[in-house]
Design a protein around this nucleic acid. Sequence first.
DNA 1: CTTTCCGATGATAGCGCTAACATGCCATCC
DNA 2: GGATGGCATGTTAGCGCTATCATCGGAAAG
Lengths: 371, 371
Amino acid sequence: MVCRRRPLHGKPFRNMARSSSSGSDKPASGDTGDVRRASTRSTGSVTLGDVAKLAGVSPITVSRVLNRPEMVTADTIEAVRRAIAETGYVPNLLAGGLASSRTKLIAAIIPTLGNAMFIDTIQPLNDCLSAAGYQLMLGLSGFPELCEEDLLKAILSRRPDAIVLTGVNHSAETRQCLLAAKIPVVETWDLTATPIDMLVGFSHEKVGAEVANYLFGKGYRRFAQVCAEDERAQIRRRSFEAALRDKGQSCLSTVCVPTPTTVRMGREGLAQLLAEGHRPEVVFCSSDVLAHGVLAEAQSRGLRVPDDMAVMGFADLDFAAYTFPSLSTVHVDRAAMGRHAGEVLLARLSGRPVDKKMVDIGFSIVARASA
Amino acid sequence: MVCRRRPLHGKPFRNMARSSSSGSDKPASGDTGDVRRASTRSTGSVTLGDVAKLAGVSPITVSRVLNRPEMVTADTIEAVRRAIAETGYVPNLLAGGLASSRTKLIAAIIPTLGNAMFIDTIQPLNDCLSAAGYQLMLGLSGFPELCEEDLLKAILSRRPDAIVLTGVNHSAETRQCLLAAKIPVVETWDLTATPIDMLVGFSHEKVGAEVANYLFGKGYRRFAQVCAEDERAQIRRRSFEAALRDKGQSCLSTVCVPTPTTVRMGREGLAQLLAEGHRPEVVFCSSDVLAHGVLAEAQSRGLRVPDDMAVMGFADLDFAAYTFPSLSTVHVDRAAMGRHAGEVLLARLSGRPVDKKMVDIGFSIVARASA
DNA sequence: CTTTCCGATGATAGCGCTAACATGCCATCC
DNA sequence: GGATGGCATGTTAGCGCTATCATCGGAAAG
């Protein structure tokens, strides 16, 4: 049943004798009595060597079956596969990565899991990478970009083959670490003239300006905002205000809320605006989640949306088209960002050239019922 | 300025000579000319040995400064820290993990990132673990539990120190792998009489039954459901129906939708129920997201909630209290599940005994405006 | 003053894997 | 028929780190 291997090259199969010094070693009395002296450090788990012994080949051949099967004949593969199944061997990627300097690990740093925006980028990134045999490791920076460097070092200590970052503002030390690691880097969710390596994002400045244009064009004049404290949201907010000024308008008031944003913050944000005595015709929110809260608060007060007050969101999250009334927002192709990041990384890692190192995926205003 | 180390024990400091065979090695001519002959495989990055040389100590001492500083005197630590900063050394956890069989990596498998329920468990788990110096690695199984085993093997090949699973239904092979890995395991989000190792969850059967009791008690009689196809949702659904039967009632209709659930599916689910000619008094949804969609669809049709139709959700996601009308639902302390999982793992990993290997964290009905 | 012990540090030998080169076999070529 | 080359496989030597035990100097004990 078991495919017995011929003794290749007439040499008796002998391996795993790693104990004695590399010079002339006096063989153990029986020669075949190659008793693997249980090292004090042995972990006891099945190793590639165990599989090799069972299959009657050398360890490197097992390694090849797993990593470069095209180098091995069909029946060797068969014998090795059988041995792997029989032993329940699970490769040790720590050892493999250490030896080859390739870990098949790609890290992505996002601010939080609590924001569906980033998740929608990560999911396709993960799909793309795992299809190519890479594993994605997520790092959560928490929004304050303070400890990004520590997180990065923790991640780099696992020697990922590449890394995906959210945002483009990184400390000098962070850039330094990344450069020193000499691995492909993709920054996402924003644009900059000075990317570390590769980049896929869109202009938050333009978003703010275009939203201002859109709302102004629809005839709204009394503007307010509920805006998250995160960096990119603040960029949108400022360019929104700047664009209004260009039209001789201004923003009545802006309520700032912490990140990640919640529906509750949206409700309380509108409540605060109204409590301050403002009666905005339209509220621009830095996320659809906030917009949803504003919508709920408006309804609970009997305000009709958009007639009494219009609401504009950002991101076009999956629910935006299905709230009542449906949410006008800014569509960002988050999945495309993730896919693109995955593709350029895979290209780099397989040695293919990457033509466009910087990609602006743009955005579009989605006019629905709420504004 | 630099704290020069005395030559301990009068021996000249000599290390990193790893090239020649272990037997008698003829020293390079000048003795001090210990030129590190660039190996063909050298990765070029800063190693612990480089730091050691700069600090004037042995590599193992640097290792101790990083991992067990209590074994090292204050000024040695100081010298090593300085050398680390100067060289920009980033430890290689592949090598460290390989040597010590401890990776400081903990893996968690969840079905999807698209469901806020699981995220809310993962976030506190992550916080808890990273505070203890562990890193969390997420694995996404996708809902069909088909390839869980492959994912698990990919994860185990990185030799995590422990693993967190979602759900309790695992294939025989999966259990086998886990047992063979000999690491702590926590199953979450469900209960079972036969956990692999440790467990923290709640009874989905009881949820279904109690929701039936609650809604029946409020006087509703015409029941319908919109229910995700996932395993645990189906358990809730069946026990909901069983409990209704016990009261001589029945469920008019159940619309099943794929996972992860979206607001859209909720809207379409209610639309389908109504199109089929049902006029339920209350709709029990397998997630708050679906419930939110049902709410929106009801509003868009001018149905008053809960007067014309009541809606019940599940999970008590962060928005549930802030929709309009606010959502009656089943509260599950997802964060506590994550914290608990983290705590028992950390206890195990630090050798402390875990008294309660199985924990039922329970749930509670939250009566708000919608039902 | 010697012995004992302890705390700080070092030398050695792997952890399990793969890069790089070596080897043997066979088919092909002149 | 020997040289040539290509292919499948094997041997050797690390990858960078830590477990383990050895060692050393000095404090405590006798």
